[in-house]
Amino acid sequence: MNKTMFDHPSLNQCNALLKRVHHKRFDANFSLLITGLSGTGKSYFAASYLKQYPSSNTPELKVRPVVYVKLTETRTAVDLLLQIVKAFTNVVGNNVNKAHFVQDRLTVLLREHRVELIIIDEVQECLTDIDGITSQRMAKQIAALLDNNPNIALMMLGTPVAGRLLRLKYGKSTERLKGEEQLSRRFMAEQQLQIIPSRCQCWINCCNYFAKKYRFPTFSLDDKQLLNRLHIATEGRMGLLNKLFSVAQIFEQSHFPKKLEDAYLASINSSAFNPFNTDMLGDDDILALLESREFQ
């Protein structure tokens, strides 16, 4: 299956680039960094891609062409490696405080499971607030991971701050940082997942994707007023739309807009402002809000 979750230009572009990176369509083994604001669909994109390459079992081993790792707080380069190792096994052995031992263990696991692509989500967790020695060590460890496993591509996902990984300069702490960029030469240009604009087919497609997921009626152009309210409620972010529909399914009201009104109060914003309250906000008010956002 080559299709992304639904047709959306930035999703489609990232999907096409990822396939080329994964299947070595370039002369060099490049990797890919995709950034986006929280809720723009990075994790959904990763999950959708992962489903296209499921694991399979042989009598000898479990083949995992694509491995997904979601980082939690990562303070050291060894932490980074261990979180990837633990995607395969919790048995990490001795010397877990030494990066080269963990790197060797990881190399064996990647080879044994025939891994082709590693997806690292929330990669900004390996950065400190200020670029310095720790951030440089993280970037160098990622570079070493790629150099030690030349047949494996890497996709990193994170908030816009993760773009710093490709822009780090390197040098000693006692002198000006030098111009060699350790990671940027191993990666394609940073790609961005964008918030989906309102009043377009992409937004209808996005709403229908989650409507089908939670067994709600699908939308058409005849539902433009409700679609506009959905966009105001979620700011065009897939993560918030998924959350809204997920909560809406638990309410027993038969009237769908009322379900959304209650779900918005319960899951997104409990203040007096509620875009599904038609007594508070008429259709013209919603349009004015959409237009004011688009001009910002």
Rank of each mutant, 00 (worst) to 15 (best):
M5I: 14
P160H: 02
L168M: 10
K259Y: 05
R105G: 08
V67W: 00
L244I: 07
T218D: 02
A266S: 03
E261P: 03
S184A: 12
S270Q: 08
K98M: 04
L287R: 11
K86Y: 13
L227G: 04
A46Y: 00
T74W: 05
F88P: 02
T40M: 02
L221K: 15
L281H: 07
D104H: 10
V102M: 01
E116N: 11
R105I: 09
E180I: 13
F101V: 10
N12V: 06
N149C: 01
C200Q: 05
N274T: 06
K213F: 11
H255S: 08
V92N: 08
H8N: 14
Q83R: 10
S198V: 04
K86D: 14
Y209P: 13
S135M: 08
V247R: 08
E112D: 15
A16D: 15
V161D: 15
T218M: 04
F256Q: 02
F251G: 01
K98A: 00
Q225F: 13
Q136Y: 00
N148C: 10
S184T: 09
T89P: 04
L18Y: 08
A189W: 09
L127H: 12
V78G: 04
L33K: 13
S55M: 06
N29G: 05
D279R: 15
Q253A: 15
G179D: 12
A143M: 10
V108C: 12
T40C: 07
E60P: 07
Q124R: 07
V92P: 01
D121N: 06
K178C: 08
R137T: 09
L61W: 08
Q83Y: 12
L226M: 11
K259L: 02
R105C: 07
V85L: 04
L157V: 00
A28M: 11
D129F: 12
K224W: 11
N148Y: 10
K98I: 03
L127N: 08
L157A: 00
E122S: 06
M155D: 03
R20Q: 15
D79S: 10
Q182R: 11
Q194L: 12
L177F: 10
E73F: 07
T72W: 10
